[in-house]
Design a binder for these strands. Structure first.
Lengths: 146, 146
DNA sequence: CTGGCTGCAAATCATTTGCAAACGA
DNA sequence: TCGTTTGCAAATGATTTGCAGCCAG
């Protein structure tokens, strides 16, 4: 039996809200729910569009503020790809992953390596940092394109 | 004998301008020169401030437009660290480094770790990839902001 | 009740562009 | 000369905030 994916994450959000003395509202639920269903990197505009299919009265600012909450609670990742828009990445339940991208065919593969992450922690600690998250992207040529 | 660092890069810029039918101007020279002397990640404001120490009449827009040229010609790297400002990195002659960024105060430090890079190579090789370059950014809280 | 939330509109902030005058080739 | 460049100011676009009324706890 597999639990419905979003339910666990909604719980994480609710716990976060409670811990901060914030409130669970229908809007926050609608936005989180819509966001958890995304797979790529959504902009605020795109997300607002989706949320409004369910709840047409929601405003841009509410989506903006909710995405900040989701980001703070670790459920979303704010990313900049240089096109002037912040995009939000849905952090999957089974943890994050890194990317390896082929410079010729543009295919993106995912990987995860615990040892690398340990070393990252070491480096950070040495510099007095507490790491919250990281981004690692390898660019090169895949087997087919080498 | 080592050539003066910036002179070669100014040549690259001039070649680029000529190829595009653009002109060499004092402003472009001043801006490029100031930029080549930077070591960290300068914002446009910061760069403008530096350029004006030499040439007080230069405007923001000119710096903006010149940095676009430098980026196009490969001499600068435009980067987004999530603090809402585009920063320009002086592509160093002696290779790259990685970044660790404070989520509160937005300070950016650099580091370099050979072991991490070896592991990256390992991961890539296992996936049939040949790595050309990579990007690694750690986000967290620095000593002062933790 | 009450302090947090929402939607709106207005304010910010960085970036980008239009334009007349100045300039390089 | 002629097309490019410049500095200014204004336009743009995304993001952020103030506020009056609304709502969850």
């Amino acid at each position: 039996m597999k639990e419905i994916k979003t339910s666990g994450r909604i719980t994480i959000l609710n716990d976060y809200l409670e811990k901060k003395g914030l409130k669970s509202t229908q809007q926050r639920y609608d936005i989180a729910d819509a966001f958890f269903k995304t797979t790529a990197h959504v902009s605020l505009d795109e997300l607002l569009r989706r949320v409004r299919r369910r709840n047409p009265d929601i405003g841009y600012a509410t989506v903006y503020r909710t995405m900040r909450l989701l980001t703070e609670s670790g459920l979303a990742l704010a990313r900049q790809f240089g096109d002037g828009q912040t995009r939000y990445e849905n952090v999957p339940e089974d943890g994050h992953h890194d990317h390896i991208i082929c410079l010729r065919c543009s295919k993106i593969y995912e990987f995860h390596n615990r040892k690398i992450e340990e070393l990252q922690e070491d480096v950070a600690k040495k510099m007095g940092f507490e790491v919250i998250r990281h981004k690692l992207e390898l660019y090169g040529y895949c087997r087919d394109c080498a």
